[in-house]
Amino acid sequence: MLKGFKNFIMRGDIVTVAVGLIIALAMSTLIKAFTDFVVNPVITRAQGGHSMGLGWQLGRTGNRATYLDLGAFLSAVVYFLIFMAVVYFLIVVPYKHVQARRGLVVFGDPGPLKTCPACLSEDLPERARKCLHCGTEQPAV
């Protein structure tokens, strides 16, 4: 039972999806901070306000809604960078090492590509026999 669970967890698509979700959550935090502390004060400048920190007051002093809080945004950027480093060094690197010991290459560089002469799509693997987009036969390499 535990061997089956280990095989399930070590599948490439599971780890790839997990890393993708983690990156999406961290990116979500970064985007939320950008909108909350940079974009929203610019938009609410027309309404009117006093805050201290790294940033500028765009309206009346004391109005938190129009304070351009760059300190909070920079802290979200630092959070994002640290979080991505942790994900890379604690999840991706060990996973690549384990998969390499199993004889599999993950998170590697894509192979060489060629262009389809019929539809001009440029994302075909070099050894493809048919085009992924138009289905035409490809000349042998």
Score class of each variant (00 low, 15 high):
Lys3Trp: 12
Phe5Ser: 09
Phe8Pro: 00
Ile9Arg: 03
Met10Phe: 10
Met10Cys: 10
Gly12Phe: 03
Asp13Thr: 08
Ile14Met: 14
Thr16His: 06
Val17Phe: 15
Val19Ser: 12
Gly20Trp: 05
Ile22Thr: 10
Ala24Val: 11
Met27Pro: 00
Leu30Asn: 03
Lys32Arg: 10
Phe34Trp: 11
Phe37Met: 05
Phe37Ile: 02
Val38Asp: 04
Val42Ala: 12
Thr44Asn: 15
Thr44Met: 13
Thr44Lys: 15
Arg45Gly: 11
Arg45Ile: 14
Gly48Phe: 12
Gly48Thr: 08
Met52Tyr: 08
Gly53Thr: 07
Gly55Lys: 02
Gly55Cys: 11
Leu58Phe: 02
Leu58Met: 09
Gly59Thr: 13
Thr61Asp: 15
Thr61Ala: 14
Thr61Gln: 15
Gly62Glu: 13
Asn63Glu: 14
Arg64Tyr: 13
Thr66Phe: 09
Thr66Asp: 06
Asp69Trp: 11
Leu70Trp: 12
Ala72Gly: 04
Phe73Ala: 05
Leu74Trp: 07
Leu74Gly: 06
Ser75Gln: 08
Val77Thr: 06
Val78Ser: 06
Phe80Asn: 14
Leu81Ser: 04
Leu81Gly: 07
Ile82Ala: 15
Phe83Asp: 03
Ala85Asn: 00
Ala85His: 04
Val86Cys: 12
Val87Lys: 03
Phe89Tyr: 10
Leu90Phe: 13
Leu90Met: 10
Val92Cys: 04
Val93Cys: 03
Lys96Trp: 01
His97Asn: 09
Ala100Met: 10
Arg101Glu: 13
Arg101Ser: 04
Arg102Tyr: 08
Gly103Val: 01
Gly103Asp: 02
Leu104Gly: 00
Asp109Met: 10
Pro110Phe: 03
Pro110Tyr: 06
Pro110Asp: 08
Gly111Ser: 06
Pro112Asp: 14
Leu113Arg: 08
Leu113Ala: 09
Lys114His: 07
Cys116Val: 02
Pro117Asn: 11
Ala118His: 09
Leu120Pro: 00
Asp123Gln: 00
Leu124Glu: 14
Pro125Cys: 01
Glu126Lys: 07
Ala128Gln: 03
Arg129Ser: 13
Arg129Ile: 08
Lys130Glu: 05
Cys131Arg: 00
Leu132Asp: 09
Cys134Gln: 01
Cys134Met: 10
Cys134Gly: 04
Cys134Ile: 01
Gly135Tyr: 07
Gly135His: 04
Thr136Gln: 13
Thr136Arg: 14
Thr136Ile: 12
Ala140Thr: 04
Ala140Met: 10
